[in-house]
Amino acid sequence: MDALRIHVCGATDDNTVTAEFMTLLQQVAEASPSDLPTALFVVPNTYSDFDEYWNWTRICDDLLVQMGYEGLLQLATFHPRYEFEGEDESDMSHFTNRSPFPMLHIIREQDIEDALKQVRNPDRIPERNRQHMRRIGHNGLLAVMPALADTAVFAGRTNHTEASDN
C-alpha cells in the first residue's frame, strides 16, 4: 500500500481528465512494479452521472489498448452510483463497485494473475463479493466504514435500516 499512487484529477473537462489519465497510465506501465504497482485515478469534479462515467471508461479501455498496454494493465471501475445491469436498484451488490468519487483503478495483470493463483474458484469471486455485500447490508457496511454515510455512495438514502437492506 505504501507504493499505491492516488492521483486526484481536479479538472472538469473531458480532454484534461483524459490527458491526465493517459499520463498516469503511462507512468504505471513504464514504472517498475515494485516502485509503482498500482494506481487510483480519482475524478471528483467530473462524471457524477453514471452513464457519462461509464462512457468515459469505455474510452479509457480503448486508450489502454491503443497505447499498447493490453495484457500488462487493466482497469477496474468505481463510482458512487455504480449499478450492475439486471440487478434491482436497491441491491447491495452494487456496493462492491461503489466509491465516494468516480475513479479508475489501474492494475497490473500479473498481480491479478498472481492473486488468483491463491484463490479457490477465482471465477466465483464477483458473485461471492456480491453475496457478502448482501449479507452485511447497509448497516454492516456503515459499521465497517462509517465515513461513507456522508458521501455520494449513500446520497439520497434516508433510511439505513436492515429492513431496507433486503
Rank of each mutant, 00 (worst) to 15 (best):
F78V: 05
H105I: 02
Y69R: 04
S90G: 12
E109N: 09
F95D: 01
D114E: 12
Q74S: 12
A115N: 10
I112T: 13
A115K: 11
Y82G: 02
I106F: 00
H94L: 02
Q110N: 13
N97K: 07
Q74C: 10
F101D: 15
H79M: 01
R120P: 02
T77I: 11
L75R: 07
L73K: 03
E85N: 11
N121W: 10
D91M: 03
P80H: 02
H79E: 02
F101A: 15
I112V: 15
L73D: 01
S90A: 15
G86F: 00
G71E: 03
D123K: 13
A115G: 10
M67K: 13
D114N: 14
R120Y: 13
L73V: 05
E83V: 06
I107M: 09
V119H: 08
D91N: 10
P102W: 01
G86W: 00
E89Y: 09
S99N: 13
E113V: 08
S90F: 12
M67N: 10
R81A: 14
L73G: 02
H105C: 07
P122E: 05
D114Q: 13
S90V: 14
M67S: 10
L72V: 12
I112K: 14
Y82M: 08
P122A: 06
E70F: 05
D111E: 14
D111C: 11
E70S: 11
T77P: 00
T77E: 11
Y82N: 06
H105K: 12
R81I: 01
Y69E: 00
S93C: 10
Q118M: 12
H79A: 02
F78H: 05
L116K: 12
D114V: 04
E85D: 12
R108D: 03
E70Q: 13
L116W: 11
E87P: 00
D88R: 15
E87H: 07
L116A: 11
S90D: 14
L116T: 06
E83Q: 15
G71L: 01
T77D: 08
M92Q: 10
E83Y: 01
D123T: 09
D91S: 14
E89K: 14
A76D: 06
L73I: 06
E85I: 03
D114Y: 04
K117Q: 15
L75V: 06
D114H: 08
L75T: 05
L72T: 12
E109L: 09
L75A: 07
I107W: 04
S99C: 08
I106K: 00
G86N: 03
S99K: 07
F101K: 13
F95P: 00
M103Q: 14
H105G: 05
L116D: 09
A76E: 05
L116V: 03
Q118E: 14
N121Y: 12
N97G: 02
F101H: 14
A76V: 07
R124T: 13
T96P: 00
V119P: 00
N121R: 15
L73F: 02
P100S: 10
P102C: 08
E89L: 10
T77C: 08
Q118W: 06
F78M: 10
P80M: 03
G71F: 01
L72D: 10
